[in-house]
Computed example of a mutant assay.
Amino acid sequence: MGISEIQKVMANNLKINKMLKFCPYEILKHWQFCEYKKGEILLKQGEIPERFYIIIEGYVDIYALAENGKKYTQALYTKGNYIGELEIFDKKPAACYAEAVSPIVLISLARDYFLKWIELDIHISNYFAKSMASLFYNLSIKAMNDNLYSLKYRLIKYLLESNQKPGDHPKEIEISINKDKISEQLAVTKRSINRVFRELRDRGIIDINNKGIIIKDMEGLLKEQELSKNQ
Rank of each mutant, 00 (worst) to 15 (best):
G2Q: 14
I3T: 11
I3S: 09
I3V: 12
E5H: 09
Q7M: 12
Q7G: 00
N13I: 01
N13H: 02
K15A: 03
K15F: 00
K18G: 00
M19I: 12
M19F: 08
K21V: 15
F22M: 10
F22Q: 13
P24W: 09
Y25G: 00
L28G: 07
K29G: 01
K29D: 05
W31G: 03
Q32V: 08
F33K: 07
K38L: 04
G39D: 02
G39Q: 01
E40A: 03
I41F: 08
K44S: 11
G46R: 08
E47K: 14
E47S: 10
F52Q: 03
Y53P: 04
Y53K: 03
E57P: 00
G58V: 01
D61Q: 10
Y63E: 08
A66K: 11
E67M: 10
E67F: 10
G69P: 08
T73S: 13
Q74V: 06
L76D: 03
Y77M: 03
G80N: 02
G80T: 02
N81S: 11
Y82C: 04
Y82P: 02
Y82R: 00
I83M: 02
G84Q: 03
E85T: 06
F89K: 13
D90M: 13
K92P: 06
K92N: 13
K92T: 10
C96F: 15
A98R: 01
V101D: 07
I107C: 04
S108W: 11
R111F: 02
D112C: 00
F114N: 04
F114S: 04
L115V: 02
D121T: 06
D121V: 09
I124T: 10
Y127H: 04
S134C: 10
F136V: 13
N138Y: 08
S140T: 15
K142G: 03
K142D: 08
K142F: 04
A143F: 07
A143K: 14
M144Q: 11
N145Q: 15
N145R: 13
D146Q: 14
D146S: 12
D146A: 15
N147H: 14
L148F: 12
S150D: 09
K152D: 11
R154E: 14
R154V: 05
L155C: 05
K157P: 02
L159S: 02
S162P: 00
N163C: 03
K165T: 12
P166W: 07
G167M: 09
H169D: 13
P170Y: 06
P170S: 05
K171W: 08
E174F: 12
I175C: 05
I175D: 01
S176E: 15
S176Q: 15
K181A: 13
K181M: 13
S183R: 06
E184F: 11
E184A: 06
Q185K: 14
Q185Y: 14
Q185I: 00
V188D: 07
S192K: 12
S192L: 13
I193A: 02
I193Y: 06
I193S: 02
I193D: 05
N194R: 12
R195C: 01
R201M: 10
D202G: 05
D207Y: 05
I208Q: 13
N209C: 07
K211Q: 12
G212S: 06
G212L: 03
I213W: 08
I214R: 11
L222P: 01
K223D: 15
Q225H: 15
S228Y: 06
S228D: 10
